[in-house]
């Protein structure tokens, strides 16, 4: 029972960070219908940013989110304005390759700057834990990052639901043409969406830095995970991505124990295919016909 509880709990906490990565991707996909293969690399940029702030300016990784978020927003907006906006109407595989190319440029630039060494960010609390009871413990930094994730997600909901800009982004995601007819500046919304998506990925990078490690190719695995989460939740659905992230966290954690840790990613991909086949609109998405 303790094993189950431990796995379940750490699955939820890890899932929170996954959710943040997934929300970023789903926003980008929702607004632009582009699958961003460079999403993990954007996360990597966020991680290095956190690393630099921590080692040079001694800013705590959790505090540095306040800096990482706006910087990554600008970075994402720049990527969108200079590169992605040019292929909005191009065929899908060109969009994919463009984001792959941008990802390669990002990861290899990081390699030139930081070398390909693994960077470890050691904070005073990196290895500290909280006793929950019943022999179950949680990692303190993981708990903090989960709390920040929840706060960021809540703020994002508020922004999307309550502000005019947020509503315009949602309208664009729902129907690009209609939004354009309604006088919404779709290109601007795309820049905003990519900026926000990148900021969220960067934030996720900052949040996992204290419990993970950093190297130039760290992004690849997260990109695939983000795809799965996004589809699971329904492409474009923020609520779906939140739930999807946590669901994937739990699935991974439990299947590592009850199936085998080597097969846990297979379980995730099979789940992904099943959802694609039987509920292509995702768990929370509205069906698009």
């Amino acid at each position: 029972m303790a094993v189950f509880m431990q796995s379940f709990l750490s699955g939820i906490l890890i899932g929170g960070v996954y959710a943040l990565i997934g929300i970023g991707l789903t926003l980008i996909f929702g607004v632009m219908r582009i699958i961003n293969f460079g999403h993990g690399d954007i996360l990597m940029v966020g991680m290095y940013l956190t690393y630099v702030l921590f080692t040079w300016l001694h800013i705590d990784p959790f505090v540095s989110v306040l800096i990482t978020f706006p910087l990554m927003f600008l970075f994402g907006g720049f990527l969108q304005k200079v590169f992605i906006n040019r292929v909005l109407h191009a065929v899908a595989q060109n969009q994919i390759l463009l984001t792959i190319g941008l990802g390669l440029v990002m990861s290899n630039t990081a390699m030139l700057i930081f070398t390909s060494d693994y960077k470890i960010l050691t904070t005073s609390y990196s290895s500290s834990t909280l006793q929950v009871g019943g022999g179950v413990t949680v990692s303190t930094p993981l708990l903090i990052s989960f709390a920040i994730t929840a706060a960021v997600t809540a703020a994002l909901y508020w922004f999307l639901l309550k502000t005019d800009t947020g509503q315009a982004i949602r309208a664009t995601a729902q129907d690009r043409e209609a939004a354009q007819l309604m006088g919404i500046n779709v290109k601007r919304m795309s820049i905003l969406a990519f900026g926000l998506g990148s900021a969220l990925a960067g934030t996720a990078g900052a949040l996992i830095s204290p419990t993970y490690y950093i190297f130039p190719q760290v992004g690849g695995g997260f990109t695939l995970k983000a795809f799965v989460i996004t589809v699971l939740g329904g492409m474009g659905s923020v609520v779906g991505a939140t739930l999807g992230g946590i669901l994937i966290g739990i699935t991974e954690s439990l299947s590592a124990v009850y199936i085998s840790s080597g097969w846990k990613d297979v379980v995730v991909f099979v789940l992904f295919l099943l959802v694609l086949l039987f509920r292509p609109s995702g768990l929370m998405g509205k069906s698009r016909t």
Binding site: A2, V3, Q6, S7, S10, G11, I14, V17, S139, I208, T211, Y212, V218, G221, G249, E252, S253, L254, A256, V257, S260, S261, G262, K264, D265
Partner: peptide
């Protein structure tokens, strides 16, 4: 006997299992 994929972020569940 746990083989894990390199670069995972979370090994807690496998380790808890070994602990048991």
């Amino acid at each position: 006997d746990v083989a894990y994929p390199k670069g995972s972020a979370d090994y807690r569940s496998s380790l808890a299992q070994i602990k048991s």
